[in-house]
């Protein structure tokens, strides 16, 4: 198994006024292909910062980040944008769909920025929406969809470019537990299909769906261990 993510002595320091905040102090970790990893920690532990760095939304102050064999620690904004576009699928707590665009267009968006021609784009987007069970909702706008459906659109958007990793930040945080369960089942499916999934959460129960949990505290890795009793969700991909 080859590693996709390799962080070496990563530190991130924010300057808030005259004060320096060490959000991450010294973090080293590797994540392999087709792993299902949860990153946990209380607020202020640095897990959002770590997620931003893993997701190439931000660059570390110190340390090296090798992503799919490429050093991305000192890439510029446009190079990072391209990495995010091609290699990373984001799923956010608040879905972050474009409110004025329908599901199809939302899913197409990464392909637009990848410069994929229209017909191919449409085909792939419809395929992605099918894979999350939303083929009959493709022309609905976000406000015409339920929370679970919105999160599935977001997952379809994350999947559509066939990225190396899927990065989910509290994906069930805004959903009721039943819908949350459905979404976790979907992630489980994706993992079985060979996707690498990184889940950021503060809920123990959600984290236990993963194979491995990395716990952060005060900008350092507190524990990094496999999950002994994984929760395997019931396969219920029929209604959202």
């Amino acid at each position: 198994m080859s590693n996709i993510i390799k962080l070496e002595n990563i530190a991130k320091i924010y300057e808030v006024g005259a004060e320096k905040v060490h959000a991450l102090k010294d973090v080293s970790l590797t994540i392999n292909e087709n792993e299902y990893v949860a990153i946990m920690g209380p607020s202020g532990s640095g897990k959002s910062t770590l997620m931003n760095i893993i997701g190439c939304l931000d660059t570390p102050t110190k340390g090296t980040y090798i992503f799919t064999g490429v050093n991305v620690s000192d890439m510029d904004d446009n190079e990072l944008a391209e990495i995010r576009n091609k290699e990373i699928g984001f799923v956010f707590q608040t879905f972050n769909l474009l409110p004025r665009s329908n599901a199809l267009h939302n899913v197409e968006l990464p392909l637009i920025y990848a410069g994929i021609p229209k017909t191919e784009r449409r085909e792939k987007a419809i395929q992605a929406l099918k894979s999350v069970g939303l083929e009959d909702r493709i022309y609905h706008k976000p406000n015409e969809l339920s929370g679970g459906q919105r999160q599935r659109v977001a997952i379809a958007r994350a999947l559509v470019t066939n990225p190396s990793i899927i990065l989910a930040d509290e994906p069930t945080g805004n959903l009721d537990s039943k819908t949350g369960e459905d979404i976790m089942a979907l992630f489980n499916d994706l993992h079985l299909k060979g996707h690498t999934i990184i889940l950021v959460t503060h809920e123990e129960y959600i984290a236990e769906h993963a194979e491995r949990i990395i716990r952060l505290r005060d900008g350092l890795i507190e524990r990094d261990e496999p999950v002994t009793q994984r929760i395997i969700p019931n396969h219920t991909l029929n209604e959202g």
Partner: peptide, 8 residues
Amino acid sequence: IRKAIGAR
């Protein structure tokens, strides 16, 4: 959102 999913 646009930047996160790859807008340059």
